[in-house]
Design a binder for these strands. Structure first.
Lengths: 252, 252
DNA sequence: CAGTGGTCTAGACCACACC
DNA sequence: GTGTGGTCTAGACCACTGA
């Protein structure tokens, strides 16, 4: 029977639509190609636009489609692999780090971050904003929270914000002795801030990567990074013992 | 000014609704408590049910709500942290592994898996099905693909499928010398198979963890695991060099 | 059975990108 | 402007759960 279908439960229209569209994307479309508009597609399949959109929503969530208001729907390229492994455990901003720091401000952390840092909610922290660009597109936005009292002193630029100040804060953080770090990944939806930075609508799906940096037995920094779930695949580099290293930079 | 709102763009109703509901969940509801039904909520907020559902959809995606057809909507407990780190790099099925193997069948792999395994599409593979249970709920379903020609010989139970056979396949795999492994995480939506195993509707959001196992310089197995995105937080254990180990089992 | 969330319709208007 | 996707409505019926 091959792909048996003894589940005689009526499959919802949008699910069947999704299957049909998915197959069409594989066989009749190429990356970057535009689809007919939603009204046209809905008419062609004989469904209401809302039903068609339910199918498109899922295909977009799976990274198969890219929709832009005022423009149209196109076939999305394969997801970009983004390395998120704690390779040679370094601080953010260390050489080789491809994130771009854009700002640093002193403020009080959100409760969840204060809890992760194990500091009182009123304790001021430095928040460094960074962005990760891949293939010319922003793929992730990060806020790095550091309690002010753990930061070693260092050169302080004038002003209370700005990219220059952000780099100065990272430089000070880098003077600490990094003991370890751990990460977690979960699904979320972009807040309006992150949405703007990621060039997406608020509420779009993101992968939230929370990193805890430990030094001297204490959590000294917490990074909350939101990755575009539609365009990103998070990769965790080879934890191998004796396998070949695929990269050329190795002589540390 | 506090939380400044100089973006005088009209916020969509569903987004405002989401904010209001989110605050209500924090202050007026406790975990497990049931919300009023959707028609009631929509009426109370003076919106169409579809608009309310747009807000509920996002809250569910964020793991704040749990909806069950025929039952109702309840406040979800915090997400379960699930360890996904390659700690002491072991094979699946090794001691300490909490997955439950339910079946193993010999078949031809889907194209994407064949590519990852670097074998021809017709090459038969053993597919071991496993499930991960946490707090009494299934949180992940996995298919582990192993080309038949890399499997060392071993005791073969009668029959062509079943849990017993799955364990036998894992035992044979465990005889290989594990060289390394790498992982990637991306967002997907549950197919009907996974949906059934995870006790969710097809199309619900899942985190797809793909693990490549390497032995003798060759990819010998590929695991594709789908985790319930609503209930799970994937954690990657401490990659520290010299920090305290929080677990008691260490003498290998 | 009654009550819940899930699917679906046929419209309407809005915000945005591009010409 | 025109054309796109995004939001919204007020219904309807279906599938499922549990009493």
């Amino acid at each position: 029977m091959g792909t048996t279908q003894l589940d005689h439960q009526p499959e919802p229209k949008y699910r069947h639509l999704k299957t049909v569209l998915s197959r069409a994307l594989d066989t009749e479309f190429s990356v970057g190609q535009a689809l007919p508009n939603e009204r046209e597609l809905a008419a062609r399949f004989g469904v209401a636009r809302a039903t068609l959109r339910q199918a498109l929503d899922q295909l977009e969530l799976e990274g198969r489609l890219q929709r832009r208001r005022g423009v149209g729907t196109t076939v999305a390229p394969p997801r970009v692999g983004v390395d998120v492994s704690p390779r040679q455990h370094t601080w953010p901003g260390a050489p080789g780090d491809t994130w771009v720091a854009s700002d640093a401000v002193r403020t009080t952390p959100p409760p969840a971050v204060a809890r992760a840092l194990d500091v009182p909610a009123e304790e001021p922290v430095e928040v460094v904003h960074r962005t990760l660009i891949a293939h010319g597109q922003p793929v992730a936005a990060e806020q790095l929270h550091i309690p002010v009292d753990v930061l070693p002193p260092g050169d302080e630029p004038r002003g209370t914000s700005g990219a220059e100040r952000a780099r100065a804060v990272l430089a000070r953080l880098g003077r600490l002795d990094l003991g370890g770090q751990d990460r977690s990944v979960e699904l979320g939806s972009a807040g309006s801030d992150d949405a703007r930075r990621l060039d997406r609508l608020p509420g779009s799906a993101v992968l939230i990567v929370t990193t805890r940096y430990v030094a001297g037995g204490r959590t000294v920094a917490v990074a909350v990074a939101t990755y575009r779930a539609d365009t990103c695949r998070l990769t965790f580099g080879n934890q191998a013992s004796g396998s070949q290293a695929p990269l050329s930079l190795s002589a540390s």
